[in-house]
């Protein structure tokens, strides 16, 4: 079907202007200043930078080993001594949250990297190759979209007895690619008949070279947006699995703190600090990424941006 489309699109003029602006965005200071100029992405970047700083300096600002327990100081409300209070076992929640930050960011980013690599390769290849390759990839993507991810991950985690960080990165990376592949395929479809792609094709370049050398560099801002999207979804899913007691069980994490709070029904006893602080840490990180994503969207969709500015 897709072969029947006309090769030359009528609306080339605005699109070339659009790509030109994005080419300028490829240089490092260029894209950064672009992102900082937008209110939403600036906010997202600043908050994200703050979380990264926390993650880096975590071992120095955590006051206690996260699994140290102290029977004399259990269930304490936040105070100067324990900023975020203590758990049932008397562990310091501030230390747990701060150290969990490092783990969550690394796990989310690594899983998102795997998923994005898979999604970009499959999505762009499908869009460019068209025909049967496209049909197969599209079909598979849609099938994976109707298989609910969380139950699937719960079942997989149930089978895995040793769930280290690497295992969870792989499991998340290999399950979260489908919706991203669909987004990127759609966007690559709008590029595949552009002059520079046709020129490369006429010059006899191989499919892989066109996918990786021509299409991918021109979609870098869209791939970045997709990466940010999967990053925060991976953070949410990962924390969710830990909350269910089915995540990485070798490190202290935000989700794990809330899991133990839930198991010991601390909420029902009126203790709000064991779930509020790790939950807020997760929410702040996710909101930062959502704002960053919204900023990138506004930058690459002029319609969303212009009307905003006229306000």
């Amino acid at each position: 079907m897709s072969q029947l489309q006309p090769i030359i699109e009528p609306e080339l003029a605005p699109l070339t202007a659009f790509t030109a602006r994005k080419r300028g965005g490829l240089r490092v200071p260029g894209w950064l200043s672009l992102l900082l100029a937008n209110r939403k992405s600036r906010f997202g970047l600043i908050v994200l930078a703050f979380m990264i700083v926390i993650a880096v300096i975590a071992p120095w600002i955590s006051v206690a080993h996260p699994t140290d327990f102290n029977i004399l100081a259990t269930r304490q409300a936040p105070s100067w001594h324990h900023l975020f209070g203590t758990t049932d076992q008397g562990s310091d929640i501030f230390s747990q949250v701060v150290l969990g930050t490092r783990r969550s960011l690394i796990l989310g980013a690594a899983a998102a990297l795997i998923a994005t690599t898979l999604a970009a390769t499959l999505g762009i290849l499908a869009a460019y190759a068209g025909g049967i390759v496209d049909e197969v990839v599209n079909f598979l993507t849609n099938v994976f979209l109707v298989i609910p991810t969380i139950p699937l991950l719960v079942v997989i985690s149930g089978y895995l007895k040793a769930r280290g960080m690497t295992t969870m990165i792989l499991v998340l990376g290999l399950t979260l690619w489908a919706f991203e592949a669909r987004i990127l395929r759609g966007q690559a479809l709008s590029l595949r008949n552009r002059d520079f792609v046709q020129a490369a094709k006429v010059a006899g370049e191989s499919t892989w070279r066109i996918v990786f050398g021509e299409l991918m560099p021109n979609m870098i801002s869209r791939i970045t947006a997709a990466f940010v999207l999967v990053f925060y979804i991976a953070l949410l899913v990962d924390a969710g699995l830990e909350f269910l007691g089915l995540g990485d069980n070798t490190h202290v994490s935000w989700g794990m703190v809330i899991y133990w709070a839930q198991v010991n029904s601390t909420v029902l006893q009126g203790e709000w600090w064991p779930f509020l602080f790790p939950g807020l840490a997760l929410v702040v990180t996710v909101v930062a990424l959502v704002f960053l994503l919204a900023g990138i969207d506004e930058l690459s969709n002029p319609r969303l941006r212009n009307i905003k500015r006229s306000k």
Partner: peptide, 21 residues
């Protein structure tokens, strides 16, 4: 949108604590 960015279990715990308890 902000509520949508909350993890579901966190919103649920907030609901249990504030609206329920």
């Amino acid at each position: 949108m902000a509520l949508g960015a909350f993890p579901a279990f966190f919103t649920a715990l907030l609901g249990v604590f504030f609206l329920g308890l």
